[in-house]
Each structure stands twice: as C-alpha cells, then as structure tokens.
Amino acid sequence: MTTHRIRGLAALLLASSLAVGAVQAASGDRQADPLDSPRWGDMRKEFFPAKARVVFDSRVKVSAPLTAENALNVPVSVDAGALPDATEVLVFADFNPITRIVRFRPEGAHPGLGFRIKLQQSTPVRAAVKTRDGVWHVGGTWVNTTGGGCTLPSAGSASPEWQKRLGEVSSRVWERKEGGERIRLRIIHPEDTGLAAGVPAFYIQELKLTDEQGAPLLHIEGFEPLAENPVFSVDIPAARTAAGYRVSGRDNNGNAISAVIEK
C-alpha cells in the first residue's frame, strides 16, 4: 500500500465526516451522542422529523442494569419528572431488531414508567421525552447482554393453560411515602415478537389507565419488545389519586384487556 493511497483514504474519511457534520448542523443538533452509538444517526432520522429540535438531556433518567443477565426480561425505568411538562415519551433501543419498545403519554400520572423488555444484543436503551414546546429531550443508558431475547418464542406461546389466562390482570396499589400512590400491574400475555420461526407477532398495542370515574391518567402504546407477561409500575401524584383505577386496552389480534384495580 502506498502513502498516496492512504492519503486518499484519509481525505475521503475527512470529507465524509464533514458531510455528516453538515447534516447534523442542518437539523439543529449540535451535541454528540453521549452514548457514542453508531446507530444514533439512524434513530434520529427514524423517530424525529428533520426539523424537530432533539437534545440530549440528563434530566431524562433511564434506569436499567449495566449488565442484563436475562435478555428476555430486562428491567427498565424511565423518569422524566425533572422536566417541567412532558407530554409524550418514546422508549427505543438502537440495536434491537425492533427498535421501538413503548410510547406513553402521561395524562395525569407522573411522567415515568417501569417495565421490562427483551433485548437481542447489547444496546443503548433511550427515552425521548417531548415537552410542550415541541422539543425532544433524550436520555439513555447502555445495557450489555449476551442477547437472543427477541428471537426466542415465549413460554406462553406453547402453553394452552396460559392461553386461557390471556389478558388476565393482577395489580396492587401502594401509598407512597413521598405522597401519591404507586400502581403496579401485570398482564398475562406472550408478547411474541414475530421473529421466532413459526410464531407470529402477538403483543399488547394499547393500554389506558384511568381513575374509577374514567378520567385518563396514562396512555401506553406497546410494541413487540415488551417482555412476556409485562409488569408496569406507574406513580400517581397526590392530586390525582382516586378510590380505585381501571385499565383497558387490546393486543394486535383485537383481544380486549379490561380490569378494575382495587385498593
């Protein structure tokens, strides 16, 4: 290899990095990805309009284990409570075969959610929080895993007993020391991704949490990577606590989910 050719290569690399810089400047993003993921550019294009303002913001807290031993059941908590007025939260994982995990709108509930996901390999897990001014605030963390979580069939897909319990909800409400209440709920559902051979995608697409009067608290749009028999943790601020709550929704096959959450 000659010096000349290497210089040519260097020039080409320099030119292409300038081009990338130009695209970023045009879209209004000036920050480097704090998670340094080669997929960030793709995520930016896929999930946000070119003209949208997207900023990395450490006020968006994403908690997940640095090393996830079980790729089928990786716990993640998102908390956007430090932002003044979060209207929508999108959670995604750069390197998952299905990147979108869950989208939720706090409509009275605290702007946060605890849930569990399936990961196929080590990846950043991010939450993008849209505030009322239209700006997207992105926080996230790396999760290392040996992976394979998305291409395995669920245990439930093979069990007739579980099919009978499909959509069954168990739940409980706690008073929080900080004030307000915490609702935890678990729904029996295989949450199949469609990536395991011969097992079609089968997952919860929509959940609405309301108080017993039907006033909305939280809207959840679910995607394939949510873990089997998903468990959610939701906090309700003191001003919105109620005598009881309801959850309703459906999966992608139209099966209804409906339950009363009693105290």
Binding site: S170, A259, V260, E262
Partner: peptide
C-alpha cells in the same frame, strides 16, 4: 400482586 385486581 395477586392479592388485588379484578378482571372486568
């Protein structure tokens, strides 16, 4: 969780 929650 099993101690509460009633399916409608």
């Amino acid at each position: 969780l099993s101690r509460s929650g009633r399916n409608a």
